[in-house]
Design a protein around this nucleic acid. Structure first.
Lengths: 240, 240
DNA sequence: AAGTGGTCTAGACCACGGC
DNA sequence: CCGTGGTCTAGACCACTTC
């Protein structure tokens, strides 16, 4: 019985699934030892290579850690780095209430640099949305979002003061956001930015320009954000 | 002859190396077919499982793509997002010559904030390395690296003006760098930073503080870098 | 010493792709 | 059809960790 054990899925995947379930159910916790490859082979009636293949796959996924000579152990729960999250989601993940004020919400056209970022023809109409983000009572960021008006014109009527832009897009506009490219640099606050962030003109700010793509690789949002320097910072995890 | 073929490295790694070399040498280009697992097994005198293991590893690294029923092919060159790369490697990936000047290279102690970042006891000795990075003739970054002196004291004698810190660590100190946590914010250039970057004091700069970890999750390097704002920026790709 | 993971063999059959 | 990768066997020895 080569490929399939009893149904159609490979034996090594069945083994992985039983282990994953045991972790999700809480029967196995971080640091606990997982059955050894020999025990898995015996219990599941497979060869050592197959049992090993199952463990190797789980390790690649980060579910378990294998230590030579010691055993295989449940890996600590992974922290998500570099995750594309909305302001609302970020606040929620820290247990804080999101708070933002809409400054502008209207249709614009002839902002050629922006339409180029969204790979739209020159002169295209776009939704422009300016918001100031607060933590407690202190302004934290000033963000301007642009979206193609042909699909998202109705956004200007959405209650974005209270609900999340990401959630609105994914719920009401059937858009699945997938990834973003960010460009980060340092600049100085001009008059308008300084005013919204309540800092003096010329003070250093972090500028993040972001193109957010849907899962079909089409650009959906272009965001330019200014963040108070020395007060808030950006965390990134890079891998070799 | 199980583990070793003729020297100490596993057969599957030798196979991977020969394929990698063939790609680096240009004998194999993106899209070209790689020898099939059966051919690899025959040529290298190993079993099919071993040949397959070699290809599986290369696929995980993104070096090749395997298509069932069709074959194994050299993967298109990856665009590296969020990859932990040294300045030297970044320059090399753009076909530019790295150029940096060592300002300081000595042992220090009692910099408690730094030793804390490296999770060293207070008062620990550390190697301090200050460098100015250039592109063409313009200064681009001013970076200060700290490493635990107990293991890396010999670095002060390494020729870091010409060779890469990453390469030196991985080659001469047997350290495998794995990932880094970065903290990015905007600040203003103080006198010393302004001097090295040839900009006026108070100008905005991007500050990146980085803790680089080895594959055993031990912090190895703490880097504080200042980058000219509005001139250079940081790219990040985030996923949802 | 006992147990663990890592590597490896010499094949086998299956499912799939291209000709 | 033939070649490809995917899965799998029933063991083996090695290097390592833990007791």
């Amino acid at each position: 019985m080569p490929t399939s054990g009893e149904n159609g899925i490979p034996a090594y995947q069945r083994i992985q699934n039983t282990i994953r379930e045991r972790i999700e159910d809480g029967q196995l916790k971080a640091g606990d030892a997982v059955a050894s490859k020999r025990e898995l082979a015996r219990v599941h009636r497979v060869s050592l290579m197959t049992a090993r293949h199952a463990l190797a796959g789980l390790e690649r996924e980060g579910v378990v850690e294998r230590r030579r000579g010691a055993g295989t152990f449940v890996a600590p729960p992974r922290i998500h780095f570099n995750k594309l999250m909305s302001y609302t989601e970020q606040m929620a993940s820290r247990g804080l209430a999101p708070c933002s004020k809409v400054i502008t919400s209207r249709i614009i056209e002839h902002e050629e640099e922006v339409s180029a970022r969204l790979t739209l023809p020159a002169g295209s109409k776009m939704v422009k949305l300016e918001r100031v983000r607060h933590t407690s009572d202190e302004p934290f960021a000033f963000e301007t979002c642009y979206l193609p008006a042909d699909k998202f014109a109705d956004l200007v009527r959405a209650p974005l003061g209270r609900s999340s832009l990401f959630a609105t897009l994914e719920r009401d506009f059937d858009v699945q956001l997938a990834y973003a490219d960010e460009e980060v640099d340092a600049t100085t606050a001009d008059g308008r930015v300084a005013q919204f962030l309540q800092m003096s003109r010329g003070a250093p700010v972090l500028r993040i320009r972001q193109v957010i793509y849907a899962s079909n690789a089409k650009p959906v949002i272009y965001v330019v954000g200014f963040y108070r320097g020395e007060r808030h910072s950006l965390f990134i995890r890079r891998f070799r």
